[in-house]
Design a protein around this nucleic acid. Sequence first.
RNA 1: GCCCCUGUAGCCCAAUCGGUUAGAGGCACACGACUUAAAAUCGUGCCAGUGUGGGUUCAAGUCCCACCAGGGGUACCA
Length: 825
Amino acid sequence: MTENTAADPNFYDVHTAQEKWLPIWDELAPFRSGRPDDTRPTKYVLDMFPYPSGDLHMGHAEAYALGDVIARYWVHKGFNVMHPIGWDAFGLPAENAAIKRGENPQTWTYENIAVQKSSMRRYACSFDWDRVLNTCDPEYYHWNQWFFLKMYERGLAYRKDSAVNWCPSCQTVLANEQVVAGLCERCDSQVTKKKLNQWYFKITDYADRLLDDMKGLEGNWPEKVLLMQRNWIGRSQGAEVSFDIEGRDEPVTVYTTRPDTLFGATFFVVAADSDLAAQLAAGTESEAAFKEYLETVKSISEMDRLATDRPKSGVFLNRYAINPVNGEKLPIWASDYVLADYGTGAIMAVPAHDQRDLDFAKAFSLPIRVVVASDTDPAETGVATADDGPHVNSGSLDGLGKAEAIAKMIGILESDKRGKSATNYRLRDWLISRQRFWGTPIPIIHCASCGEVPVPLEQLPVTLPDASTLDLSPKGTSPLGAADEWASVECPKCHGMARRDADTMDTFVDSSWYYMRYLNPHLTTGPFDPEQAKKWLPVDQYVGGVTHAILHLLYSRFFTKVMYDMGMVDFQEPFTRLLNQGMVVMDGSAMSKSRGNLVKLSDELNDHGVDAVRLTMVFAGPPEDDIDWSDVSPSGSKKFLARAWRLAGDVTSAPDADFATGDLALRKITHRVVADAELALDTYRFNVSVARAMELVNATRKAIDSGCGPADPAVREAAVAVAIILSNVAPYTAEEMWERLGYEPTVALAPWPVVDPKLLVEDEVECVVQVNGKIKERLTVSPSISKEDLQALALAQSSVTEAIAGATPKVIVVREPKLVNIVLG
RNA sequence: GCCCCUGUAGCCCAAUCGGUUAGAGGCACACGACUUAAAAUCGUGCCAGUGUGGGUUCAAGUCCCACCAGGGGUACCA
């Protein structure tokens, strides 16, 4: 142990190196992207910004290491790279922590930001520190409010009463996207329904574009994310069919994807919790039974309601719908298996060909009529059939296949004015009101005489009141409502006394457009400068977790399209390429304090150094894969870095040595490695780029110890290549190497080594000759050998002629220069 | 239930187009050199026939089908 001191010239002291370079890099600011005289072409690399809850953790370390590889690589390739960072600083954790400790959420938030910022600086990502933003700063959320008002102007922000998702623990409403399997995304409490008047963004207006524009993202976004978004939007094609109701003037419309099965409808179901059900039940002898049923439905938790194996329940309403195609009377039932907020909240039930309808029919002994022929009988098997035809018992549809039958039925309905083709979506409008304090106030004023009045643009931002005077504990209504002095305001229209809207916005509003704010984080005249937008946008590379596959990424895409429609930007998709990094886990499961498998980033950094941790993250495997920290070896990474560092120290040639005069064998390896690393980096195989660098280090070591020796210029060339490739991952070590090689800082700005194609060409390659797939001979041939020559050469080999033994080859496959396969009959 | 992804040495991972005897890199392990010894360092070695069963092909880790295992998404959306 006594040898491992700074006195030993072969001991690489990572912590000293870290201390040494940070101030120098601060001085040089190699990643400042806003220099006005910069003529390099631009690239925008964006990491999903962190939420400031405590210090950075292993997950941050992985994500930022990967994003940094891309950003640094692009700088080497000669781009002016904008790689900004900021903080997603509004949200519940700050508020909850503040309540717990009796302090101001603002204090808690800024303290955490300071901690994370200092950790990030040490972690040495290529962030442009001139562009930092915090969403909780009024200079930021000013523009959230501005966007809200623009949405309002365009009819895209509106209020409505509806049954909304309510988290009883967070005491606030949630967007559909924030309810995961019936539980609150944040705290895992069971979500309940509550009837409230809330603000929405009309994202459903953009459903088709959000869906169709994904075509342009294919190949550049993970297929998985695109699929999840497609499913989430859930477009379905079908028809609306209008049914007359006995004893009612108004018909009722249903939505169906199978209008061709209309002849198979044997009953009719309305959502129990819909207004329609209550109307239909009113005044009938079933009214009491209906009300009783509705009560039981309401008492069932969302969680239980979602269980699909739950037996069907419902109540007959003593009313009848008339089937428009055959005049049959269909009994109307109310049930909770029909959803009030999808389609029209009413369905025609075709039990033979819909499993849910069949289950219901069986439970209440309703008739089942097959209208699409099949080998099995649903009434017997209890399994609804889904064949494509032919149709039976269906009048003029008989004999037709599914597609023709649907088209014909829609034609019939249209000519009879009883229906039309229709599209439905699973996507709902985005509920953005939150009954909490630590968020962007909604810039609306409620006036007794003027109603809903937008805050005039020149009065923005509507800033939050001082939290210290408020009781933030969740009460189900926004704490802002209790801030009388803040809430009482003059109506901008009539100048009478009015009140501010007391809700705040979903923090996903903040993150929907933050990538644009980095262009000019302190601009006071608009959300961003259009000139800068032309220069930098859209984002070339986005890096972040797959947890945001639907929420954040869908909302950002929506915002971008709205801005496009407003003429603010000239592109419709915000993120050209997306990389979803995996998670860092421990012993096979997600790290958590309660599980006792939490690995602290700060401990790892102290034990192994920043570079070793970053290298471990990048080298562990493909970036999309999870990293099990118990499978990888930061100490191994550290050893490798020291090995690379020693290499640079061994080089004895002059800094300006002419590489072209160097040892050819090593030069070929160097150029091969650089070319391979380049290809790997272009295709997200960062782990492979590291492996190539390791290969080069091994080869160079060998050259120094037992080859061309340390003075050969090829050794310098190799060490330079190692330093540059490594600088994407291990900036401190690379900088140390650069210095030892006799160059000025910083290696970060060194141009990517130019590959000489001549050095990639092999002088000779090995060719195998197979007979019936069995290898009979190995030939050393020129890589440029012709097909004919190679075939002739192969057939001339004695081992080959022996194997053929006079037989006539059926086919000879020649893949010059590497393979000949002679196939005998 | 439905949809998607992934299965390669003890472990983590490589393997443009289907093409040599599956191996670039690492971890672990073993041995050797250096050392009084150890650590560090340098070097050498080590192990699988690619989840299973079929198929296509002159040729399959790579393409197709079925199944198994693991992971993820979604869930009464008519």
